[in-house]
């Protein structure tokens, strides 16, 4: 089972929820993997402090043109919608940083003059934090395209056990890539106007996705009718209301997990987990 933890707004506590849910599930005896797909700013390792066993570079395939074989017919240039390859009178120029790796130019080249080479965009770490499996993608600084790296991270997640996917914030392509194929989607929000506004954007973005969804309200200071009504409107249940707690904030600032710092957290995540199971089960019927 793959559970994605996502948030329209950044800084709502997405990583906190993902990490603590992992720790709860490990403690409950399950086989669990944490997959950090927030590849632009991966932070899970700061809290889980995993032992990294392997690191591999990953990239996207970009065209390499053999000038001897090329007959300058121009087919590749007219196909490419990203302007990553352009044919001039006497040569072909490529702009690898604009290439999305569709492979079209190499496929259609009548002269078979285009080969594909990998252009590295980031790395993927694998390891363990105790019994917890750990996978994390990290985009190279200056690289613009994170979805290909996110896909590579997801490919490495195991098929059995539970995988918790820490998704990038926002509602555009990186976030959608990370949550698209999960079995359950957990949306984290906070009770502020910004938090609610971005939660609604997120609810709109994911409403067409087939998997069941639940909301976690973080840093709650008493009842928040507006957020509850919003979730009602989109038919998504609120599975957990995590109270604002200065101890948690302090622990977080030092890189400790709430799990380590605050004893009451066990019940919060136990309730959250049974909520997810109930919900996932109901939708499976």
């Amino acid at each position: 089972m793959k559970i994605a933890v996502a948030s329209g707004k950044g800084g709502t506590g997405k990583t906190t929820v993902a990490v603590n849910l992992c720790l709860f599930l490990v403690d409950a005896g399950l086989q669990v993997t944490y997959a950090d797909c927030d590849v632009e700013e991966p932070d899970g390792h700061l809290f889980l402090k995993p032992e990294i066993v392997t690191r591999r570079r990953t990239g996207i395939p970009v065209p390499h043109v053999d000038p001897e074989a090329c007959n300058l017919c121009g087919e590749c240039g007219s196909l490419c919608r990203y302007s990553a390859i352009v044919v001039l009178k006497d040569r072909v120029m490529t702009f690898p940083e604009l290439c999305h790796g569709c492979g079209g130019c190499a496929y259609i080249c009548p002269a078979r003059a285009i080969a594909e080479v990998d252009r590295p965009i980031g790395s993927i770490d694998r390891g363990n934090a105790g019994k917890l499996g750990f996978i994390s993608g990290c985009l190279d600084i200056g690289q613009a395209m994170s979805p290909p790296l996110i896909k590579e991270v997801l490919k490495e997640t195991p098929d059995d056990g539970v995988t918790i996917v820490d998704a990038p914030p926002g509602t555009s392509c990186p976030a959608m890539t990370a949550v698209g194929d999960c079995d359950y989607l957990l949306l984290v929000t906070e009770p502020t106007p910004f938090g609610r506004h971005d939660l609604e954007l997120m609810l709109k973005a994911v409403c067409s996705l087939p998997m069941p969804k639940g909301v976690v309200m973080n840093r709650v200071n008493g009842p928040d009718a507006a957020t509850e009504e919003l979730c009602d409107k989109y038919g998504v249940p609120v599975l957990a209301r995590i109270p604002e707690d200065r101890l948690v904030a302090e622990a977080y600032s030092k890189g400790l997990t709430a799990w380590e710092a605050v004893s009451g957290y066990r019940t919060v995540f136990a309730d959250l987990w049974s909520g997810i199971q109930k919900d996932a089960g109901r939708c499976g019927e």
């Binding site: 240039g77 919608r81 990203y82 990553a84 001039l88 702009f95 604009l98």
Partner: peptide, 15 residues
């Protein structure tokens, strides 16, 4: 109205 690389395409047009 190009999605991206307008400068590259314009360069190719002018060429």
């Amino acid at each position: 109205n190009a999605a991206q690389g307008a400068g590259i395409q314009a360069g190719s047009t002018v060429a």
